[in-house]
């Protein structure tokens, strides 16, 4: 246990070093600055995927509507800053709070549902949220979107360049990962994994199953709302199609492809899916029109051959290698 703890935090530190590399590479001309913007989107997707990983992979609840919270976060920030001149960062907090409150109100009745029913209910939430963004013209400006969302500031420095945004957003993403790790390595995290394993047994051990499901749903919504708010501040423009069902499904893809076993699956999934979105067309060269098909094929291959996801697949291989090298893993019955 201790070693695992040490390892998760160790990985986090290692990740910090890895993330320090791109700016250096850009500085020395070994890497194009364009990639920094892709890394920014990776940071945003990582924040949402980490929350969804807690919800789906560790607590065993599904959500096909998380784009709703991403959208709620983005629209909260956009409306507060553009229409009401709300101070920067206050709107980010407000976006997180509102996402959490709505998750609480929606989650209280729906999380009592299980399996497919929960999937459909959360999908309904996503659809309703999209309709509200699209149709509530007086507040959201409807399908034409909100322009002129200000960039974030730290003290008096406006986050104008991609490099500044990169540092800021990845710092926040690392904090989100840290929060998730801390939750998982605590009484709360054990309760979540317990109710995933067996709701009855968890309840028999005193875990308030409904309350914990609601808690993790709210946490994941808060992460998504945070990412949405930061997305709005980075793009400076938002409109409803960014927050539709398609994005919800992409989020679920991220955590499935990444792997359910650890929180790092979320990071791997976010990095992989974002890269594929950005680079697949380029990589295919003359066949770039077929990128959507290749994208689908890659998903299928991952699911068929590595159902545990990439992170899971790697740890399975690792385990096998390790078993080969003498340490007995399982006790014979």
């Amino acid at each position: 246990m201790k070693s695992l703890l040490k390892n998760d935090y160790g990985i986090l530190v290692a990740l910090m070093f890895v993330l320090a590399a791109p700016p250096i590479l850009v500085k020395f001309g070994a890497m194009n600055s364009y990639y920094i913007s892709i890394l920014i989107f990776m940071a945003l997707n990582t924040m949402i995927a980490v929350g969804l990983n807690l919800l789906v992979c560790h607590a065993g609840q599904i959500s096909l509507g998380h784009a709703a919270f991403y959208g709620i976060g983005a629209y909260t920030s956009a409306i507060l800053t553009v229409v009401y001149g709300c101070p920067l960062w206050v709107d980010v907090i407000a976006a997180m709070v509102l996402s959490g409150v709505i998750a609480y109100l929606v989650g209280a009745p729906t999380l009592k549902l299980k399996g497919h029913y929960l999937a459909v209910a959360t999908m309904g939430l996503g659809i309703i949220a999209f309709i509200v963004m699209n149709e509530w013209h007086s507040v959201t400006e409807g399908p034409s979107g909100i322009v002129g969302i200000p960039r974030l500031k730290i003290f008096e420095t406006v986050m104008r360049t991609d490099m500044q945004v990169y540092y800021l957003y990845w710092a926040i993403a690392l904090i989100v990962i840290l929060v998730a790790i801390n939750i998982l390595n605590s009484r709360v995290g054990r309760a979540l994994r317990a109710l995933h394993g067996s709701e009855t047994a968890a309840a028999a051990m005193g875990v308030n199953v409904n309350s914990y499901k609601l808690k993790v749903f709210v946490i994941s919504a808060v992460f998504a709302g945070l990412a949405g708010s930061l997305y709005a501040h980075y793009m400076t423009f938002i409109s409803p199609p960014s927050f539709g069902l398609q994005f919800s499904i992409m989020l679920v893809l991220m955590i499935i492809v990444g792997g359910a076993e650890t929180i790092w699956g979320a990071l791997i999934g976010a990095v992989l899916i974002t890269s594929m979105r950005a680079f697949l067309g380029e990589a295919l060269g003359a066949y770039k029109d077929y990128d959507v098909i290749v994208y689908g094929l890659v998903m299928m291959v991952v699911m068929i051959f590595i159902p545990a996801g990439l992170a899971g697949g790697v740890s399975i291989i690792a385990r096998k290698l390790k078993r080969g090298s003498a340490q007995p893993e399982e006790i014979g019955a």
């Binding site: 009484r187 309760a191 394993g197 005193g206």
Partner: peptide
């Protein structure tokens, strides 16, 4: 009905749930 996704020790630690309070 064990929590198969957790270690032996963690299973037993879930037993301590009612005796701890950290939220």
């Amino acid at each position: 009905q064990l929590f198969h996704n957790m270690s032996v020790l963690e299973n037993a630690m879930v037993g301590c749930h009612t005796r701890t309070r950290a939220d």
